[in-house]
Simulated scan of single mutants.
Amino acid sequence: MLRMLFGEEPAAPAGVVADALKAMQAYASAMHLHAVAGRDQDHKARTREVMAFGLMASLDELEQSCYAASRFGALVTSDSWADMPQEERLHYRRYVYFDKNAFIRLFSLLDKLGTLLNEALELNTQQFKERFSYFTVLRRMREKKLHLALGGPLSDLKARHEKPVARLRKRRNEEIHNLNSELQDDLLQMHLHFGEEIGLESISDQLEDMASGLELAAASLQLAFAYLAKLAEEKAPQSGR
């Protein structure tokens, strides 16, 4: 969808994003078959099918936001706002928009995944914390030793991306609760170098962090939905029994 901004055709999913979408589609199909077979009296299968499709859309939107941010970010070459010609300032503002869009969508996606895992695996995280995040769900699985075959790999994945995701979470929290994230760096520079020209934040570093966040999201989705699909298959009634 967003690639049209650059005169490009929609791109086919690739790599870990494609793997995640495939796993989610397989799980959604399994839930659909469960429902149409008349085994969904509590409507949980239908709900999980819809949640899977919602997460597929969320991953696609996240990937596109990351791509748009990277394309607009590559067009910003000046070291400061004051040095930018008008056209480059527009590119920078577009970069900021899609960068924010991406890191906000990242944590929204992860929390939706946490909600699905909490319900599908009957983790009851809400008894521990009424308003919980994806990371709270992981902690619940680890501390209660629940579904270790999934919780272990998800926690390992989180640990591999811990530093960039922590920076992204800090920027997300500042953006939502305090001050525009791009102004935080300006404020810090004003305190440290009062009276001097304020340089731009490192766009390349931010893009690297966001790429790590996208990889975390996609790989976590792939692991989670492959595990959920396996559980559903094990619980499904076998023909001839």
Rank of each mutant, 00 (worst) to 15 (best):
S133H: 09
D205K: 08
A12C: 01
C66V: 14
K170S: 09
R3C: 02
K163T: 13
E201Q: 08
Y67L: 09
A102P: 06
A28E: 11
F72P: 03
T115Y: 11
N118G: 06
L55T: 02
A219W: 03
M190G: 00
H177W: 00
D40V: 07
D111S: 04
G54Q: 10
V165H: 00
V137E: 09
L154D: 03
R167F: 07
K235A: 15
A102F: 07
E234N: 13
L33Y: 09
D99N: 09
E196D: 12
R39G: 00
G151L: 03
D209G: 08
Y92A: 03
E208P: 00
L216P: 01
K129R: 14
P164A: 13
A74Q: 12
Y67W: 13
A211R: 12
L123K: 06
Y97C: 07
K163E: 15
F128Q: 15
Q222M: 08
S133P: 01
M141I: 11
N124G: 02
R39K: 14
D42L: 11
A219E: 09
T125G: 07
S29E: 14
D185N: 06
K44V: 00
A120F: 01
S220L: 03
D19P: 03
V36T: 14
E143R: 15
M4E: 13
R39D: 10
L157H: 10
T125N: 03
S80R: 05
N178I: 11
G240V: 09
K129W: 00
H161I: 04
A14M: 11
A224H: 05
L113Q: 13
M141V: 09
A217H: 03
P10F: 04
L192P: 01
L207G: 02
A35K: 11
Q189I: 02
E9A: 12
S58V: 00
E182F: 07
E49M: 14
S212R: 04
L148R: 15
S155C: 09
S239P: 04
H147P: 02
Q64A: 11
D156F: 05
D111M: 05
R93T: 14
R71V: 05
F103Y: 10
L207I: 07
A20V: 11
L117V: 01
A217C: 07
A12P: 12
D42M: 10
S108D: 00
A12D: 08
R89I: 03
E234C: 09
H147I: 07
S181L: 07
L138R: 04
P85L: 00
L117N: 06
L33T: 05
S65M: 06
L146V: 08
K230C: 05
Q184V: 15
E197N: 08
F6T: 11
L179C: 02
E201Y: 12
L168I: 14
L75K: 11
A69D: 02
G15L: 10
Q25A: 14
P164F: 08
E63Y: 06
N118H: 10
N118R: 10
L200T: 03
E119D: 14
T47D: 10
K129G: 03
K144M: 14
A35Y: 08
S155V: 12
I198D: 01
A232N: 12
S80M: 01
